[in-house]
Amino acid sequence: MSDFDRPVDRRSTHSLKWDKYRTQDILPLWVADTDFMASPAIIEALHQRIEHGVFGYTLVSKELVDTVQTRLQKRYQWPIQPDWLVWMPGMVSGLNIACRATGHSGSAVLSPKPVYPPFMSAPTLSERQSTTIPMVLQGTRWVMDLDALEEAITPACKLLLFCNPHNPGGTCYRKEELQRLLEICERHDLILCSDEIHCDLILDPEIQHIPVASLDSKLAKRTITLMAPSKTYNIAGLACAFAIIPDASLRNHFRRVMQGIVPEVNLLGLTAALAAYRDSEQWSMQQLDYLRGNRDYLIEEINRIPGMHLHPFEATYLAWIDISGLELTDPGGFFEHAGVGLSPGADFGDSKFMRLNFGCPRATLEEAVSRIRQALAQRG
Protein backbone atom coordinates (compact mmCIF):
# COMPACT_ATOMS: atom_id res chain seq x y z
CA MET A 1 0.00 0.00 0.00
CA SER A 2 1.53 3.32 -1.08
CA ASP A 3 1.68 6.15 1.43
CA PHE A 4 0.48 9.29 -0.34
CA ASP A 5 0.52 11.18 2.97
CA ARG A 6 4.28 10.79 3.13
CA PRO A 7 5.98 14.11 2.35
CA VAL A 8 8.80 14.01 -0.21
CA ASP A 9 11.26 16.90 0.00
CA ARG A 10 11.67 18.13 -3.57
CA ARG A 11 13.70 21.19 -2.69
CA SER A 12 17.29 21.25 -4.03
CA THR A 13 16.34 18.72 -6.75
CA HIS A 14 16.07 21.28 -9.59
CA SER A 15 12.31 20.76 -9.55
CA LEU A 16 10.54 23.24 -11.82
CA LYS A 17 7.58 23.19 -9.45
CA TRP A 18 9.49 23.77 -6.22
CA ASP A 19 12.44 25.86 -7.43
CA LYS A 20 10.09 28.63 -8.55
CA TYR A 21 9.78 29.55 -4.88
CA ARG A 22 13.05 28.11 -3.56
CA THR A 23 13.90 31.20 -1.48
CA GLN A 24 10.33 31.87 -0.29
CA ASP A 25 7.87 30.23 2.08
CA ILE A 26 5.34 29.53 -0.66
CA LEU A 27 3.63 26.16 -1.18
CA PRO A 28 3.87 25.38 -4.93
CA LEU A 29 0.48 24.14 -6.12
CA TRP A 30 0.78 25.30 -9.71
CA VAL A 31 2.37 23.25 -12.53
CA ALA A 32 0.74 19.86 -13.15
CA ASP A 33 3.04 17.33 -11.57
CA THR A 34 2.28 15.67 -8.26
CA ASP A 35 4.39 15.45 -5.12
CA PHE A 36 3.94 11.68 -4.88
CA MET A 37 6.74 9.18 -5.41
CA ALA A 38 6.32 7.08 -8.53
CA SER A 39 5.07 3.53 -8.15
CA PRO A 40 7.50 0.94 -6.75
CA ALA A 41 7.33 -0.90 -10.09
CA ILE A 42 8.53 2.17 -11.98
CA ILE A 43 11.33 2.87 -9.52
CA GLU A 44 12.49 -0.76 -9.66
CA ALA A 45 12.42 -0.84 -13.47
CA LEU A 46 14.51 2.33 -13.63
CA HIS A 47 17.01 0.90 -11.12
CA GLN A 48 17.42 -2.21 -13.24
CA ARG A 49 17.92 -0.23 -16.41
CA ILE A 50 20.45 2.11 -14.77
CA GLU A 51 22.39 -0.83 -13.33
CA HIS A 52 22.86 -2.08 -16.90
CA GLY A 53 25.05 0.99 -17.35
CA VAL A 54 24.65 1.65 -21.09
CA PHE A 55 22.35 4.46 -22.18
CA GLY A 56 22.50 4.51 -25.96
CA TYR A 57 19.86 5.16 -28.61
CA THR A 58 16.84 3.01 -27.83
CA LEU A 59 13.96 1.60 -29.86
CA VAL A 60 10.36 1.36 -28.66
CA SER A 61 9.95 -2.24 -27.55
CA LYS A 62 7.31 -4.56 -28.92
CA GLU A 63 6.31 -5.22 -25.31
CA LEU A 64 5.46 -1.55 -24.76
CA VAL A 65 3.49 -1.37 -27.99
CA ASP A 66 1.61 -4.57 -27.10
CA THR A 67 0.92 -3.21 -23.61
CA VAL A 68 -0.57 0.01 -24.99
CA GLN A 69 -2.68 -1.96 -27.47
CA THR A 70 -3.98 -4.27 -24.76
CA ARG A 71 -4.69 -1.37 -22.44
CA LEU A 72 -6.74 0.54 -25.02
CA GLN A 73 -8.69 -2.57 -25.95
CA LYS A 74 -9.41 -3.55 -22.36
CA ARG A 75 -10.29 -0.08 -21.07
CA TYR A 76 -12.11 1.38 -24.05
CA GLN A 77 -12.83 -1.50 -26.41
CA TRP A 78 -10.65 0.37 -28.89
CA PRO A 79 -8.64 -1.91 -31.18
CA ILE A 80 -5.64 -0.04 -32.57
CA GLN A 81 -2.88 -1.17 -34.91
CA PRO A 82 0.80 -0.93 -33.87
CA ASP A 83 1.67 1.33 -36.77
CA TRP A 84 -0.91 3.91 -35.62
CA LEU A 85 1.39 4.83 -32.72
CA VAL A 86 3.79 7.74 -33.07
CA TRP A 87 6.10 8.16 -30.08
CA MET A 88 7.35 11.58 -28.98
CA PRO A 89 8.82 13.28 -25.90
CA GLY A 90 5.65 15.07 -24.82
CA MET A 91 2.07 16.06 -25.44
CA VAL A 92 2.98 19.71 -26.13
CA SER A 93 5.12 18.51 -29.03
CA GLY A 94 2.05 16.69 -30.31
CA LEU A 95 -0.09 19.84 -30.28
CA ASN A 96 2.52 21.79 -32.20
CA ILE A 97 3.13 19.01 -34.70
CA ALA A 98 -0.61 18.67 -35.29
CA CYS A 99 -0.82 22.38 -36.15
CA ARG A 100 2.05 22.09 -38.63
CA ALA A 101 0.76 18.83 -40.12
CA THR A 102 -2.67 20.22 -41.02
CA GLY A 103 -3.67 23.14 -43.18
CA HIS A 104 -1.05 25.65 -44.26
CA SER A 105 0.50 28.92 -43.16
CA GLY A 106 -2.35 31.32 -42.44
CA SER A 107 -5.05 28.69 -41.98
CA ALA A 108 -7.02 28.66 -38.73
CA VAL A 109 -6.91 26.38 -35.68
CA LEU A 110 -9.88 26.15 -33.31
CA SER A 111 -9.51 25.46 -29.60
CA PRO A 112 -11.57 25.84 -26.40
CA LYS A 113 -10.98 28.67 -23.96
CA PRO A 114 -10.06 28.64 -21.13
CA VAL A 115 -7.60 25.83 -21.77
CA TYR A 116 -4.06 24.64 -21.10
CA PRO A 117 -1.84 27.48 -22.48
CA PRO A 118 -0.02 25.51 -25.26
CA PHE A 119 -3.39 25.12 -27.01
CA MET A 120 -3.31 28.87 -27.58
CA SER A 121 0.40 29.21 -28.38
CA ALA A 122 0.77 26.23 -30.74
CA PRO A 123 -1.21 27.79 -33.64
CA THR A 124 0.74 31.05 -33.45
CA LEU A 125 4.09 29.25 -33.29
CA SER A 126 2.98 27.30 -36.38
CA GLU A 127 2.03 30.43 -38.34
CA ARG A 128 -1.67 29.63 -38.00
CA GLN A 129 -4.51 31.79 -36.82
CA SER A 130 -5.99 30.92 -33.43
CA THR A 131 -9.78 30.90 -33.04
CA THR A 132 -11.09 30.18 -29.55
CA ILE A 133 -14.43 28.65 -28.57
CA PRO A 134 -15.86 29.46 -25.13
CA MET A 135 -16.23 26.88 -22.41
CA VAL A 136 -19.65 27.20 -20.78
CA LEU A 137 -21.07 25.94 -17.51
CA GLN A 138 -23.82 23.34 -17.98
CA GLY A 139 -25.03 22.54 -14.48
CA THR A 140 -21.71 22.04 -12.73
CA ARG A 141 -19.78 20.86 -15.81
CA TRP A 142 -17.52 23.04 -17.94
CA VAL A 143 -18.00 22.02 -21.58
CA MET A 144 -17.08 23.49 -24.94
CA ASP A 145 -19.99 25.38 -26.52
CA LEU A 146 -20.62 23.24 -29.61
CA ASP A 147 -23.14 25.71 -31.03
CA ALA A 148 -20.51 28.44 -30.83
CA LEU A 149 -18.03 26.05 -32.43
CA GLU A 150 -20.20 25.56 -35.51
CA GLU A 151 -20.78 29.30 -35.81
CA ALA A 152 -17.04 30.01 -35.61
CA ILE A 153 -15.96 27.60 -38.34
CA THR A 154 -14.86 29.23 -41.60
CA PRO A 155 -13.26 27.76 -44.74
CA ALA A 156 -9.88 28.74 -43.25
CA CYS A 157 -10.37 26.34 -40.31
CA LYS A 158 -8.54 23.05 -40.76
CA LEU A 159 -7.91 21.76 -37.24
CA LEU A 160 -9.71 21.58 -33.90
CA LEU A 161 -7.63 21.14 -30.74
CA PHE A 162 -9.70 19.40 -28.07
CA CYS A 163 -8.99 18.54 -24.44
CA ASN A 164 -10.70 15.57 -22.73
CA PRO A 165 -10.65 15.42 -19.74
CA HIS A 166 -10.53 19.17 -19.87
CA ASN A 167 -7.68 21.14 -18.33
CA PRO A 168 -8.71 23.24 -16.52
CA GLY A 169 -12.26 22.47 -15.40
CA GLY A 170 -11.98 18.71 -14.93
CA THR A 171 -14.81 17.70 -17.27
CA CYS A 172 -14.94 14.20 -18.73
CA TYR A 173 -17.01 14.38 -21.93
CA ARG A 174 -19.90 11.97 -22.48
CA LYS A 175 -20.50 9.77 -25.51
CA GLU A 176 -23.29 11.94 -26.94
CA GLU A 177 -21.13 15.07 -26.68
CA LEU A 178 -18.21 13.37 -28.40
CA GLN A 179 -20.41 11.98 -31.16
CA ARG A 180 -21.74 15.45 -31.92
CA LEU A 181 -18.21 16.81 -31.95
CA LEU A 182 -17.13 14.17 -34.47
CA GLU A 183 -20.15 14.95 -36.64
CA ILE A 184 -19.24 18.66 -36.66
CA CYS A 185 -15.68 17.81 -37.69
CA GLU A 186 -16.96 15.55 -40.47
CA ARG A 187 -19.42 18.14 -41.73
CA HIS A 188 -16.79 20.88 -41.86
CA ASP A 189 -13.83 18.70 -42.90
CA LEU A 190 -11.80 19.37 -39.75
CA ILE A 191 -8.98 17.30 -38.33
CA LEU A 192 -9.58 16.69 -34.61
CA CYS A 193 -6.55 16.56 -32.30
CA SER A 194 -7.67 15.31 -28.90
CA ASP A 195 -5.40 15.75 -25.87
CA GLU A 196 -6.36 12.88 -23.54
CA ILE A 197 -3.34 12.99 -21.25
CA HIS A 198 -5.55 13.00 -18.11
CA CYS A 199 -7.65 10.02 -19.25
CA ASP A 200 -6.50 7.82 -16.35
CA LEU A 201 -7.38 10.44 -13.74
CA ILE A 202 -11.17 10.08 -13.67
CA LEU A 203 -12.20 10.82 -10.09
CA ASP A 204 -15.87 9.80 -10.30
CA PRO A 205 -15.97 5.97 -10.33
CA GLU A 206 -19.25 5.87 -12.24
CA ILE A 207 -17.84 7.88 -15.15
CA GLN A 208 -15.82 6.28 -17.95
CA HIS A 209 -13.37 8.12 -20.16
CA ILE A 210 -14.12 7.60 -23.87
CA PRO A 211 -11.40 8.26 -26.46
CA VAL A 212 -13.18 10.21 -29.16
CA ALA A 213 -11.48 8.18 -31.89
CA SER A 214 -12.88 4.94 -30.46
CA LEU A 215 -16.47 5.85 -31.32
CA ASP A 216 -16.43 5.56 -35.11
CA SER A 217 -13.72 3.86 -37.19
CA LYS A 218 -14.60 5.93 -40.27
CA LEU A 219 -14.55 9.28 -38.50
CA ALA A 220 -11.45 8.24 -36.57
CA LYS A 221 -9.49 8.73 -39.80
CA ARG A 222 -9.63 12.46 -39.16
CA THR A 223 -8.32 12.19 -35.58
CA ILE A 224 -5.03 12.53 -33.74
CA THR A 225 -5.25 11.28 -30.13
CA LEU A 226 -2.52 12.31 -27.69
CA MET A 227 -1.83 10.22 -24.59
CA ALA A 228 1.01 9.76 -22.09
CA PRO A 229 1.73 8.12 -18.74
CA SER A 230 3.30 11.33 -17.42
CA LYS A 231 0.43 12.88 -15.44
CA THR A 232 -1.03 9.72 -13.96
CA TYR A 233 2.28 8.21 -12.87
CA ASN A 234 4.21 11.45 -12.14
CA ILE A 235 6.95 10.77 -14.69
CA ALA A 236 6.69 13.95 -16.78
CA GLY A 237 10.42 14.58 -16.36
CA LEU A 238 11.14 11.35 -18.25
CA ALA A 239 9.43 12.72 -21.38
CA CYS A 240 7.42 9.94 -23.02
CA ALA A 241 4.15 10.36 -24.92
CA PHE A 242 2.47 9.05 -28.04
CA ALA A 243 -0.02 9.97 -30.71
CA ILE A 244 -2.56 7.51 -32.11
CA ILE A 245 -3.26 8.34 -35.77
CA PRO A 246 -5.36 5.77 -37.69
CA ASP A 247 -5.13 7.43 -41.12
CA ALA A 248 -1.88 6.58 -42.93
CA SER A 249 -1.69 9.80 -44.93
CA LEU A 250 -2.22 12.01 -41.88
CA ARG A 251 0.18 9.89 -39.84
CA ASN A 252 2.92 10.08 -42.49
CA HIS A 253 2.54 13.85 -42.73
CA PHE A 254 2.71 14.06 -38.92
CA ARG A 255 5.93 12.03 -38.97
CA ARG A 256 7.47 14.16 -41.74
CA VAL A 257 6.89 17.32 -39.71
CA MET A 258 8.70 15.68 -36.77
CA GLN A 259 11.77 14.66 -38.77
CA GLY A 260 14.98 16.35 -37.74
CA ILE A 261 13.22 18.45 -35.09
CA VAL A 262 11.53 16.22 -32.53
CA PRO A 263 13.92 13.80 -30.78
CA GLU A 264 13.24 10.16 -30.07
CA VAL A 265 11.92 9.21 -26.64
CA ASN A 266 14.79 8.46 -24.27
CA LEU A 267 15.33 4.97 -22.89
CA LEU A 268 14.39 5.84 -19.29
CA GLY A 269 11.12 7.35 -20.47
CA LEU A 270 10.30 4.16 -22.37
CA THR A 271 11.33 2.03 -19.38
CA ALA A 272 9.08 3.99 -17.03
CA ALA A 273 6.16 3.95 -19.47
CA LEU A 274 6.23 0.16 -19.69
CA ALA A 275 6.42 -0.25 -15.91
CA ALA A 276 3.60 2.25 -15.49
CA TYR A 277 1.16 0.67 -17.93
CA ARG A 278 2.09 -2.96 -17.28
CA ASP A 279 2.83 -3.10 -13.56
CA SER A 280 1.34 -0.08 -11.77
CA GLU A 281 -2.43 -0.49 -11.97
CA GLN A 282 -2.91 -1.11 -8.26
CA TRP A 283 -0.79 1.94 -7.40
CA SER A 284 -2.84 4.03 -9.84
CA MET A 285 -6.10 2.96 -8.22
CA GLN A 286 -4.75 3.83 -4.77
CA GLN A 287 -3.69 7.25 -6.02
CA LEU A 288 -7.16 7.85 -7.47
CA ASP A 289 -8.72 7.08 -4.09
CA TYR A 290 -6.38 9.54 -2.43
CA LEU A 291 -7.03 12.24 -5.02
CA ARG A 292 -10.79 11.79 -4.61
CA GLY A 293 -10.39 12.53 -0.93
CA ASN A 294 -8.30 15.61 -1.67
CA ARG A 295 -10.84 16.82 -4.21
CA ASP A 296 -13.78 16.36 -1.86
CA TYR A 297 -11.92 18.12 0.95
CA LEU A 298 -11.00 21.02 -1.32
CA ILE A 299 -14.51 21.50 -2.70
CA GLU A 300 -15.95 21.59 0.81
CA GLU A 301 -13.33 23.97 2.21
CA ILE A 302 -13.09 26.37 -0.74
CA ASN A 303 -16.86 26.77 -0.85
CA ARG A 304 -16.77 27.87 2.80
CA ILE A 305 -14.57 30.85 1.90
CA PRO A 306 -16.55 33.97 0.94
CA GLY A 307 -15.68 35.18 -2.54
CA MET A 308 -14.37 31.81 -3.76
CA HIS A 309 -16.25 28.97 -5.44
CA LEU A 310 -15.33 25.54 -6.76
CA HIS A 311 -17.84 23.49 -8.72
CA PRO A 312 -17.75 19.69 -8.42
CA PHE A 313 -15.56 18.21 -11.16
CA GLU A 314 -14.95 14.77 -12.57
CA ALA A 315 -11.29 14.37 -13.47
CA THR A 316 -7.66 15.52 -13.05
CA TYR A 317 -5.95 16.77 -9.89
CA LEU A 318 -6.38 20.39 -10.99
CA ALA A 319 -9.07 22.52 -9.34
CA TRP A 320 -10.45 25.47 -11.34
CA ILE A 321 -11.44 27.94 -8.64
CA ASP A 322 -13.68 30.94 -9.26
CA ILE A 323 -12.17 33.91 -7.38
CA SER A 324 -14.25 36.65 -9.02
CA GLY A 325 -15.97 37.41 -5.72
CA LEU A 326 -12.65 38.46 -4.18
CA GLU A 327 -12.20 41.33 -6.66
CA LEU A 328 -8.40 41.05 -6.66
CA THR A 329 -6.33 43.30 -8.91
CA ASP A 330 -3.34 40.89 -8.84
CA PRO A 331 -4.66 37.42 -7.99
CA GLY A 332 -1.37 35.59 -8.48
CA GLY A 333 0.51 38.06 -6.31
CA PHE A 334 -2.15 37.97 -3.60
CA PHE A 335 -2.01 34.18 -3.22
CA GLU A 336 1.79 34.14 -3.36
CA HIS A 337 1.86 36.77 -0.60
CA ALA A 338 -0.43 34.43 1.33
CA GLY A 339 2.16 31.67 0.88
CA VAL A 340 0.38 29.64 -1.83
CA GLY A 341 1.62 29.46 -5.42
CA LEU A 342 -1.27 28.86 -7.83
CA SER A 343 -1.58 29.08 -11.62
CA PRO A 344 -3.23 32.36 -12.66
CA GLY A 345 -6.42 31.84 -14.61
CA ALA A 346 -5.28 34.54 -17.04
CA ASP A 347 -2.67 32.07 -18.36
CA PHE A 348 -5.54 29.80 -19.41
CA GLY A 349 -7.73 32.59 -20.75
CA ASP A 350 -9.88 33.67 -17.79
CA SER A 351 -8.51 35.99 -15.12
CA LYS A 352 -11.51 35.36 -12.81
CA PHE A 353 -10.09 31.95 -11.88
CA MET A 354 -7.04 30.33 -10.34
CA ARG A 355 -5.91 26.72 -10.87
CA LEU A 356 -4.78 24.70 -7.87
CA ASN A 357 -2.88 21.41 -8.13
CA PHE A 358 -4.03 19.15 -5.29
CA GLY A 359 -1.75 16.25 -6.21
CA CYS A 360 0.02 16.54 -2.87
CA PRO A 361 -0.17 15.15 0.68
CA ARG A 362 -3.35 16.17 2.50
CA ALA A 363 -1.33 18.06 5.10
CA THR A 364 0.07 20.32 2.37
CA LEU A 365 -3.42 20.97 1.05
CA GLU A 366 -4.74 21.75 4.53
CA GLU A 367 -1.91 24.18 5.13
CA ALA A 368 -2.61 25.90 1.80
CA VAL A 369 -6.29 26.36 2.66
CA SER A 370 -5.35 27.68 6.10
CA ARG A 371 -2.97 30.22 4.57
CA ILE A 372 -5.63 31.41 2.11
CA ARG A 373 -8.17 31.83 4.90
CA GLN A 374 -5.70 33.74 7.05
CA ALA A 375 -4.71 36.08 4.20
CA LEU A 376 -8.35 36.86 3.41
CA ALA A 377 -9.15 37.45 7.07
CA GLN A 378 -6.26 39.93 7.32
CA ARG A 379 -7.48 41.63 4.16
CA GLY A 380 -10.71 42.43 5.98
Rank of each mutant, 00 (worst) to 15 (best):
Leu64Glu: 01
Pro117His: 05
Ile197Gln: 02
Glu151Cys: 11
Thr171Pro: 10
Phe119Ala: 03
Pro28Asn: 05
Ala368Tyr: 07
Leu226Val: 05
Thr124Asp: 13
Ile80Thr: 13
Glu206Ala: 15
Thr67Ile: 08
Tyr317Ile: 06
Ile80Trp: 01
Arg180Cys: 14
Trp320Ser: 05
Ser2His: 12
Tyr277His: 12
Glu127Gly: 12
Cys199Val: 10
Pro28Leu: 09
Leu318Asn: 03
Arg49Trp: 05
Glu127Ser: 14
Val212Ile: 15
Gln73Ser: 14
Leu159His: 08
Pro89Gln: 01
Thr34Cys: 07
Ala275Gln: 00
Glu44Thr: 07
Ser2Asn: 01
Asn234Pro: 02
Leu298Val: 05
Glu186Cys: 05
Pro211Arg: 04
Ala363Asn: 00
Leu250His: 04
Val212Arg: 04
Thr124His: 07
Ile184His: 05
Leu201Glu: 13
Arg100His: 11
Asn234Met: 02
Ser217Thr: 14
Gly307Glu: 03
Glu63Trp: 05
Glu327Val: 15
Thr271Leu: 14
Pro40Cys: 02
Phe55Leu: 05
Gln286Glu: 15
Trp320Thr: 10
Ser107Gly: 07
Phe353Val: 07
Gln24Glu: 13
Arg256Ser: 15
Val262Thr: 08
Asp145Asn: 06
Arg180Val: 15
Arg100Leu: 15
Gln138Met: 08
Tyr76His: 11
Asp195Ile: 09
Ile224Glu: 02
Arg128Val: 12
Gly56Phe: 03
Ile80Asn: 05
Tyr317Gln: 03
Trp320Gly: 06
Ala243Glu: 10
Glu127Trp: 13
Pro229Ser: 04
Ser93Gln: 03
Ala275Ile: 11
Ala122Lys: 00
Arg187Val: 13
Leu16Ala: 10
Thr102Glu: 04
Ile153Tyr: 02
Tyr277Pro: 08
Leu72Asn: 08
Ile191Pro: 09
Arg6Thr: 12
Ile153Glu: 02
Arg292Cys: 11
Glu336Trp: 00
Cys199Met: 13
Leu226Arg: 03
His52Phe: 03
Gly341Ile: 02
Gly53Ile: 11
Arg128Lys: 06
Thr102Ile: 03
Arg362Tyr: 05
Leu161Lys: 02
Leu342Gln: 01
